[in-house]
Write a protein that binds this DNA or RNA. Structure first.
Lengths: 156, 156
DNA sequence: CTAAGTGCAAAAATTTTGCAAACTA
DNA sequence: TAGTTTGCAAAATTTTTGCACTTAG
């Protein structure tokens, strides 16, 4: 059975062709891995995943492809203060922000229309036209908070 | 006239001494430059500024000191997707977020208690304990929006 | 075919680290 | 003086680039 072409796939093909470019196996594999893993992947981790199915891919291609996918609106770069970029698949008509556990690294996505509405209000106040935004909340997840409290208060 | 010791200065001295460390000219110069410049400075730019008054300072010291100032709660690292970190002086009891013009690089700071309240609500929903957050809105400032509109619509 | 894309390795750019010398308390 | 901090240069990381080779269209 021929699998229905996914949304990101159409988008990628049309973006590439429209720019007079070619659709290559590398580009397809990278995009697919990003969508399937659905996490927030650094290029290193992404490379490991993709090499399982396509061992000859190089990091240079990965970096070049990530840029392409971002331009095409299929991926988005995230920085969580680790010294490198992570990428996540971007689904159309959907935007989310992040809760990041500073202890275990867990990332939770959330969407809060009310916050976005307030952002628009702020932008209007400063005469900015919003192109994109990023809201990351760093803290301790439920699990880590409990662990921390147990092992805490050793001295002082 | 002996200048009244600034808030950040007391904070720095007490932090350093409390950790059994020493207060050096380097640390003072770096903190002072960061506070006085009051921008969002990359280490490169900060180095240029400080070298005017203290030419022998090294980048290694700058990096080490930035980390120290962040730990002391005097500075805060910001990432605006440029491939390096910028630092801003952190004033007590004050938190702000950023509006960044993607065209001219202008950065406007704002504070919106209502957004912060909603963030707390989101965190509670996911059982997170907030440690810090970052909200950056990218877009076009008033000036750049006008320029863009003028030179726009050349084809299609 | 032919221009675009890839892989490799070298280059950039930012940040970190080891260590002898300098300096603070 | 003892232990911390600095400056330098080398190393580590992440990302970019030059170029010959491969490949999609």
């Amino acid at each position: 059975m021929k699998r229905k072409q996914a949304d990101w796939q159409k988008k990628l093909v049309s973006y590439v062709h429209q720019k007079g470019g070619r659709m290559t196996r590398q580009r397809l594999e990278v995009a697919q891995a990003l969508v399937e893993e659905k996490g927030h992947m650094g290029v290193g981790a992404l490379s490991d995943v993709i090499k399982k199915r396509f061992p000859s891919i190089s990091k240079a291609t990965l970096y070049r492809t990530m840029k392409l996918l971002c331009d095409a609106g299929i991926a988005k770069a995230c920085e969580f203060g680790e010294g490198f970029l992570r990428y996540e698949a971007l689904h159309p008509e959907e935007h989310h922000d992040h809760l990041i556990c500073t202890s275990c690294g867990k990332i939770v996505e959330f969407e809060e229309k009310a916050i976005e509405a307030l952002q628009e209000a702020v932008a209007k106040r400063f005469k900015f036209e919003i192109v994109s935004h990023r809201l990351d909340i760093f803290g301790l997840c439920d699990k880590c908070r409990k662990l921390t409290n147990k092992n805490d208060t050793p001295k002082e």
